[in-house]
Simulated scan of single mutants.
Amino acid sequence: MNIGIFTDSYFPQLSGVATSIKTLKDALEEQGHNVFIFTTTDPHIKKGTVEANIFRFSSVPFISFTDRRVAFRGFFEATKVAREVKLDIVHTQTEFALGMIGKYVAHQLKIPAIHTYHTMYEDYLHYVLNGHLLRPYHVKQFTNAYLKNMDGVIAPSKRVEALLKRYRVNIPMRVIPTGVDINSLNKLETVDVRKELDIPDDVPVLLTLSRVAEEKKIDRILNAMPEIIDEFPKTRLVIAGDGPDMEVLQEQVERLTLEDSVIFTGDIPHDDVGSYYKMADLFVSASDTETQGLTYIEALASGTRCVVYDTDYTEHVFDDEEFGKVFNGPGEMLNEILFYLRKGRKQIPHDKLAAKMDQISAQKFASSVYQFYQDTISNYQKDLKEETND
Results as ranks from 00 to 15, higher is better:
58 S>Y: 03
72 F>Y: 11
20 S>A: 09
52 A>P: 15
24 L>A: 10
23 T>G: 00
60 V>I: 08
69 R>W: 09
56 R>E: 00
68 R>K: 13
54 I>C: 02
42 D>L: 03
83 R>Y: 01
80 K>H: 04
61 P>H: 13
48 G>I: 03
71 A>R: 05
27 A>Y: 03
79 T>L: 15
73 R>M: 15
68 R>G: 08
41 T>C: 00
45 I>W: 04
84 E>H: 09
82 A>Q: 12
84 E>G: 01
38 F>S: 04
25 K>G: 02
24 L>D: 06
50 V>T: 12
28 L>M: 04
36 F>H: 14
24 L>R: 09
27 A>C: 07
31 Q>C: 08
81 V>R: 05
58 S>Q: 00
61 P>E: 06
48 G>H: 14
51 E>D: 02
74 G>V: 06
55 F>T: 01
81 V>E: 13
43 P>K: 04
75 F>E: 13
52 A>Y: 14
43 P>M: 02
26 D>Q: 10
64 S>L: 15
31 Q>D: 09
27 A>E: 07
47 K>C: 04
21 I>K: 00
63 I>K: 12
77 E>C: 06
60 V>Q: 08
24 L>W: 08
85 V>T: 00
75 F>L: 11
79 T>Q: 12
31 Q>I: 11
23 T>H: 02
59 S>T: 04
74 G>E: 01
21 I>T: 08
40 T>W: 07
45 I>P: 04
37 I>Y: 01
36 F>N: 05
31 Q>S: 15
80 K>Q: 09
39 T>H: 00
54 I>H: 14
50 V>E: 03
77 E>R: 07
76 F>V: 09
65 F>P: 09
60 V>D: 13
24 L>C: 04
28 L>E: 09
40 T>I: 02
41 T>W: 01
57 F>H: 02
25 K>I: 05
22 K>T: 06
61 P>V: 04
84 E>M: 03
46 K>N: 10
54 I>W: 06
47 K>V: 04
64 S>R: 07
74 G>I: 03
54 I>Y: 08
58 S>P: 08
57 F>Y: 03
81 V>Y: 02
33 H>Y: 14
75 F>D: 08
68 R>Y: 10
43 P>S: 06
38 F>G: 02
77 E>S: 12
22 K>P: 00
54 I>P: 00
82 A>V: 06
25 K>S: 07
56 R>M: 01
73 R>E: 11
46 K>H: 11
65 F>A: 08
83 R>E: 06
46 K>L: 11
73 R>Y: 15
41 T>Y: 05
63 I>Y: 14
80 K>T: 12
83 R>M: 10
42 D>A: 02
71 A>N: 01
70 V>F: 08
67 D>I: 07
82 A>F: 11
35 V>W: 10
69 R>F: 07
50 V>I: 09
85 V>P: 12
46 K>S: 15
42 D>N: 03
44 H>W: 11
34 N>E: 12
63 I>P: 12
62 F>W: 14
65 F>R: 14
47 K>M: 05
72 F>G: 05
22 K>M: 15
71 A>W: 00
41 T>L: 01
47 K>L: 06
83 R>Q: 15
21 I>L: 04
79 T>Y: 10
